[in-house]
């Protein structure tokens, strides 16, 4: 019995050229990267050997004396994330309706809405926080605004996708029966989308807790303020304590949110 490999897939000339072109582009990207990045390895090694003893053992022996203070700041962080994501979950609803083409009724408006929402999403939270610290001063309120605006982009986009996937037969049937817009909204659309909306909002809260831990670095309240001071004072055992609290709290919130979301949907 003769054995042979299956015949090779034939590729057209066009796709061959395309593949060669992509490989070349990637190769050039890497050559450019490694040619122009400047890392002074002798300095890195030198710094590492002199800093290692000062940083790493300290990091793993957290300063328990400051545990109370750190936990208090972490609670403030959670408050910031909570208020911010709840505000976003509400603001994103009308925006989601505008950006869903079966709701706004016009492809142009929907596409424009999606563009705006993606645009908002492109700003990292901490850059928004810088803007709001300038506007309302270095308070937790600035952090809340940053979280609220940053989350609105993502939630609005997700809401719009949910709205576009709903069963429109229900809406049509209600329209045919003479229901007005508000009745259609509350009895035809909202019941279909509530579980997904809630699930996404809770998921976003989970992300926001993580995001708001660093906002304090630019003065927007929460545990980030302590990160900033620990870094400036090179107090690595404080940093260890902060890190420990962040890891524990974020893990707990992740598990809780996964549990709740599984119950909702």
């Amino acid at each position: 019995m003769s054995q042979q490999l299956p015949p090779k897939r034939k590729r057209s000339m066009k796709s061959k050229i395309k593949i060669v072109f992509i490989i070349l582009a990637v190769l050039l990207l890497y050559i450019w990267t490694f040619a122009s990045i400047s890392i002074d390895f002798t300095r890195v090694v030198e710094r590492f050997s002199s800093n290692y003893g000062r940083v790493v053992p300290q990091l793993f022996s957290p300063n328990w004396d400051r545990a109370g203070e750190v936990i208090e700041m972490m609670i403030e962080t959670i408050f910031i994330a909570y208020v911010g994501s709840l505000a976003a979950a509400i603001i994103a609803v009308p925006l989601g309706f505008i950006a869903a083409f079966n709701m706004s009724g016009s492809k142009i408006i929907a596409t424009f809405g999606k563009w705006v929402l993606s645009g908002v999403r492109a700003f990292p939270e901490i850059i928004l926080a810088i803007l709001f610290v300038v506007a309302v001063g270095p308070t937790p309120f600035a952090g809340i605004l940053a979280i609220a605006i940053g989350s609105t982009g993502m939630l609005g986009k997700l809401y719009a996708e949910v709205l576009e996937s709903i069963d429109m037969n229900v809406v049509e049937a209600m329209e045919a029966n003479g229901a007005n817009k508000i009745q259609i909204m509350f009895h035809g659309i909202i019941p279909q989308v509530i579980p997904e909306f809630l699930s996404y909002a809770i998921y976003r809260f989970e992300i926001d807790v993580r995001a708001s831990t660093i906002l304090g670095y630019v003065g927007a309240g929460g545990i980030g303020t302590m990160i900033f001071f620990a870094q400036s004072n090179r107090n690595w055992s404080d940093m260890g304590m902060i890190l420990f609290v962040i890891i524990v709290v974020v893990t707990i919130i992740d598990y809780a949110s996964t549990y709740i979301r599984r119950k909702i949907v």
């Binding site: 990045i37 400047s38 890392i39 002074d40 390895f41 300095r43 890195v44 710094r47 590492f48 800093n51 290692y52 940083v55 790493v56 990091l59 901490i126 993580r210 995001a211 831990t213 660093i214 670095y217 980030g224 990160i227 870094q231 090179r234 690595w236 940093m239 902060i242 890190l243 962040i246 890891i247 974020v250 893990t251 992740d254």
Partner: peptide, 20 residues
């Protein structure tokens, strides 16, 4: 669970300010 900025603070503290 560790935010990116916290990782950066630690590794910048370890390797000095810069790209590495």
């Amino acid at each position: 669970t560790i935010p990116d900025v916290v990782l950066a603070v630690i590794f910048v503290g370890l390797f000095g300010i810069g790209v590495f």
